[in-house]
Design a protein around this nucleic acid. Structure first.
Ligand SMILES: [Mn+2]
Ligand SMILES: [Mn+2]
Ligand SMILES: [Zn+2]
Ligand SMILES: [Zn+2]
Lengths: 139, 139
DNA sequence: ATTATATTGCAACGTGGTTGCATTTGTCAA
DNA sequence: TTGACAAATGCAACCACGTTGCAATATAAT
């Protein structure tokens, strides 16, 4: 599964760095929750592949541009990223510890809401729905 | 309208500062869109009541705690605040210029969505729905 | 092995926001 | 009116998250 991603990148003339490959591995084995740059850096470190923070940020930007990961706005001040699986979904996040969880949604009813809004001057291209609350531990 | 807010604060033992009164005025006369700390500071300056940035941030925290304003997460890196009018609503925001607009919603269909989610470990207390797109000027 | 250039590390910078502490100001009671 | 006490303020320094310029390094094609 990683191989297709890697091959696609290589075919576009990008290099398959040690860190790049590892980051993709991390995202693939981490379907649970979106992670931040700091968390990713920590995971790299844990995998004996330390990388400079600048590199981590640049790599996240790169993978976003390449459509391999997507940015997830969790409402706290930090960007998070998750693998760009297809399938629309929403997120729940803890107001105390900022834990984030993905919520798959069978048929998103927000398209009608969108219609109501699109009539205005804004041209709507997407939406983000976050549920706030307290996770099990923080309750 | 401002008088009730001010009286309530005074009754709780808080002081009616020049800046505090002006900020409340600004929020009351600004039903349009949520504003950031920097924007608020600029408006104060324009009203001949310059205030230190620390004071502005502290006052926004204070008014949030007092339930007079509410934080609006617009997805760009900065907090915004709006008057805590009752009545649930959502927001649209421009991906280019970060303009934010409030969208009133007659009957928010998200309560069912919430049910589906609340069954999990998270205890949901609220949600935030943002529509992303391009405003008229930025299209 | 050589080469071209994609990637990296470092240090410095930027923005949004916070904190400790000394000073000022609002409020109330004498 | 005048103190006095606590709330609010200004300042400077700090913090987290993220970005940028540039020189050094690593990948991969020849
Ligand atoms: Mn997700
Ligand atoms: Mn609003
Ligand atoms: Zn939690
Ligand atoms: Zn715009």
């Amino acid at each position: 599964m990683a191989h297709q991603i890697l091959k696609a990148l290589k075919d576009k003339g990008f290099r398959l760095t040690k860190v790049r490959k590892l980051i993709i591995e991390i995202f693939l084995s981490n379907s649970a929750a979106p992670i931040s740059a700091v968390e990713l850096k920590a995971r790299l470190m844990a995998a004996d592949a330390d990388a400079n923070k600048t590199t981590v940020y640049r790599e996240l930007d790169f993978l976003s541009e390449q459509g391999i990961v997507v940015e997830v706005n969790a409402g706290d001040g930090k960007k998070r990223y998750e693998l760009n699986r297809d399938g629309h979904h929403h997120h729940i996040l803890c107001l105390r510890c900022s834990a984030v969880e993905c919520v798959t949604v069978d048929n998103c009813t927000l398209q009608e809401e969108l219609k109501r809004v699109d009539s205005k001057s804004f041209k709507i291209t997407g939406h983000s729905l976050n549920f706030f609350g307290l996770c099990e531990e923080c309750q």
